[in-house]
Design a protein around this nucleic acid. Structure first.
Lengths: 340, 340
DNA sequence: CTGAAAGCGCTAACAA
DNA sequence: TTGTTAGCGCTTTCAG
């Protein structure tokens, strides 16, 4: 299990040449006489020589990986995003390390510190709520692209969805169907995106001249079970909502389950974020589609540009903010009219 | 963006001590006079010094990451598995790099080669179908734990679900409800697990003395849309199945959708692998629960043991095979009796 | 308790 | 065309 892996030296000794020659052969570069190259290649294969990227990187002063720091890879949204990061990075020969924060600021920080130690070339980060001044320490060493969450801190490339605008539109969609009592479920202080979506919700209500009822936007139910309970509570009252806006796909699962249990097919629903079977349910669930894959791909492209992988574009320049559009997919649940 | 990161030398120079002293302080080790340590620590903070893991690893001859190679992180099964690997690895201070194969043997190989170059300490691999002799090259360098897919090649630690047995039980569950024409959907030659599940299906039918009808187990529909079409085809015939076994959760989504479109609530369904909303559907979907999180955790624990992180247990020994149990969760769809 | 020197595996000058 | 030498940043003898 622990035979020392062969090094350039071993190969050189075995082949009776200098290590530099082996290096040249391994890197496919330069002029090496064909017969020598063949011979060396042979020894390389026979010894199962594998170049040591660590040493290479140490020499080069920079690694060959990029880091992805997210809430948790178990979240389908981030899984899709990370998948896109990987495939985009791979095209440029970069590996991907990831670390999850579990929504804990300290863990975010330690993950990033860890990656800095690993000499990552760059970082894609979905920041947890909290102070991010500490990032300044790292930005001198490698570019950082923020994803999904918009941030007060300026100076970072950012790729986000227009949470506020998309939510405003979604609520408008419900208002157009006559709904006046629209609940906002899935609110969670840990997620800045939720606040933005809540803002969009307020925007739409204000624009329509509808007073905000705080009871319709309770707190702390970003997760499936909590959202489920919230819906039970909301619909258990006399003047419950006629429509529900669910602020994230996990919450939506709970909302859907609750509506189903209560047999309330009369309540309209729009989900921020698509989820499996949304089209299958009865009624099919109208969603705001976030396209995590696109967010990841765009973010990585931007990172690669900052790293100089994009020949065509300049690697420096002011921080950019890309807003990935989110489309409303009308499937039925969001088109339920208000009962008269 | 590219100020050279400070090194031990820089800190040493600034603090007016030798690099070794800085090294000692950074590693919190040994005896350094308290005042000196304080002073050095101060300079470290001021310069934003971050140790270079690459150099450390080069010196140590081994890295601080473990690799995970899977089909794609976008698959919820592997996302959950990878998430478990990460949290388990993190407890031992190891980072996680991942690479996806996209079901392509060559990509699997190149990903592993890449990780070998990166000096991963160990590997968790969900092997793609194909020849894996090449793995022998690497096993001398680092331990490899195979997950999810059982393998003919001996000598590797393996963590799998008892696909065959669990499927046999699931089919038995349907047979007990009187079903005799049970379809097998989601079959795909790319996945060895599918073959094992198909074997289990055959086992159960044979045990019940029911002849196998190849038309009930068509090929090539592991994905949602293909599975959906397959169900339409199967139920479009005169002697269609009265029950469906779906061999993976992605396929199940398609099956559910098709059943819903066809309004066939009379057809029984058991899904191999749980999925969101399975409990919400009408009828709720009976599933064989694979517990990917557990598979990942067990695999990583085994890997850590091979790496000597588990003080209590020996790091060497013959390859072990852990079979993680898969429980049948009866929710309704699998308990539909055959129509008389 | 602290420092000097060697070397991990590799590449990039610079020679030969 | 090929080899020698000097580090990359760090840890580890072995001295002071």
């Amino acid at each position: 299990m622990n035979d020392r892996r062969p090094t350039l030296h071993d190969v050189a000794a075995e082949a009776g040449v200098s290590i530099k020659t082996v290096s040249r052969v391994v890197n496919g570069s330069e002029q090496v006489s064909p017969d020598l190259r063949l011979h060396v290649q042979d020894v390389v294969d026979r010894l199962n020589y594998v170049p040591n990227t660590l040493a290479r990187s140490l020499k080069a002063g920079t690694g060959d990986t990029i880091g992805v720091v997210i809430d948790t890879i178990a979240d389908p949204f981030f899984a899709a995003l990370t998948s896109a990061v990987e495939s985009t990075a791979l095209e440029s020969g970069l590996n991907v390390v990831f670390g999850s924060t579990g929504y804990v600021p300290e863990r975010e920080r330690s993950q990033i510190e860890r990656m800095a130690m690993q000499q990552v070339r760059g970082l894609v980060l979905a920041p947890v709520l909290g102070n991010h001044e500490y990032l300044a320490r790292f930005r001198g060493s490698f570019p950082i692209v923020l994803v999904d969450r918009s941030f007060e801190i300026d100076g970072y490339d950012t790729v986000v969805v227009d949470d506020r605008g998309a939510t405003r539109d979604a609520i408008g969609h419900l208002l157009a169907r006559g709904h006046r009592r629209i609940a906002f479920v899935g609110r969670d202080e840990r997620f800045p995106t939720t606040s933005d979506r809540l803002d969009g919700y307020h925007d739409a209500l204000h624009a329509a001249g509808i007073p905000v009822d705080p009871l319709l936007a309770p707190r702390g139910q970003a997760e499936e079970d909590a959202a489920e309970r919230a819906v039970h509570d909301l619909l258990g009252t006399d003047d419950g909502p006629t429509a529900i806006f669910s602020a994230n796909p996990r919450a939506s699962l709970g909302v859907v389950h609750a509506l189903h249990e209560l047999r309330r097919t009369d309540v309209a629903l729009v989900s921020f974020g698509d989820f499996p079977l949304a089209r299958t349910l009865e009624p099919a669930v109208t969603c705001v589609d976030q396209d995590p894959h696109r967010i990841g791909a765009v973010a990585t492209t931007q990172l690669l540009r900052r790293l100089g992988f994009d020949e065509g574009r300049d690697r420096i320049g002011p921080a950019e903010r890309v807003v990935v559009p989110a489309a409303l997919i009308a499937r039925g649940s969001g088109e339920i009219e208000v009962p008269r």
